[in-house]
Amino acid sequence: MIGIPTALLLGTVLLLLLLLMAARGSAVAREVSSRSDTPPFEEEAGLDLCPAEFVTRIFCPDDWEFVSRTRSRQLQVLFRRERKLVALVWVHQTSIAIRRIMREHTEATRQSHDLHFATETKLGLVYAELMLICGMLFLAIQAAGPQRVRGLAVYAGALSGRLAQAQQNFKTVTTGRQFHGAGSS
């Protein structure tokens, strides 16, 4: 009834989760006992991260083009390495900030009596999506460098825009046909 890969996968996932719990368990207990004055959940709290305008520079090709024009191989290698490092640090900090948002939320709501399953699931999915994006960004920067990541992001944005446009066109045509069909019958 249950396939071999499924059973092995589930068993392994359980063992990994337990490993994570064993690693985090004592840390959580320490945290709880030492934190008597945890700041309350701040509804207006921001991300506390480097402004996006500055971060855009990391992914912007302008600096790279400038360095390329110097024709210094050493400088180019140094620039690429430094930029990649800065970009990776930024992704790491962003993922920490996102994790903090969720941690503050779970700590503020876990004792609440009226926790909503649907709302929590939705928040969990958005959180998972953001963490996935951070993970993918991390991998993409490692593999291709921040400049190419921007190119990829622009391409993905344009592609999703085209897809949305196509979907809109399809919807318009379908609605039009239905309207036409209803009119003729």
């Binding site: 207006e44 709290a45 960004l137």
Partner: peptide, 25 residues
């Protein structure tokens, strides 16, 4: 609870917009 959930939703949405803006998509 609803206020906290709404604030978290807003903050996560801000985070998504921030990442998209930073990467330039």
């Amino acid at each position: 609870y609803q206020r906290v959930a709404a604030a978290t939703q807003r903050r996560l949405h801000d985070a998504r917009t921030y990442v998209a803006k930073a990467v330039g998509s």
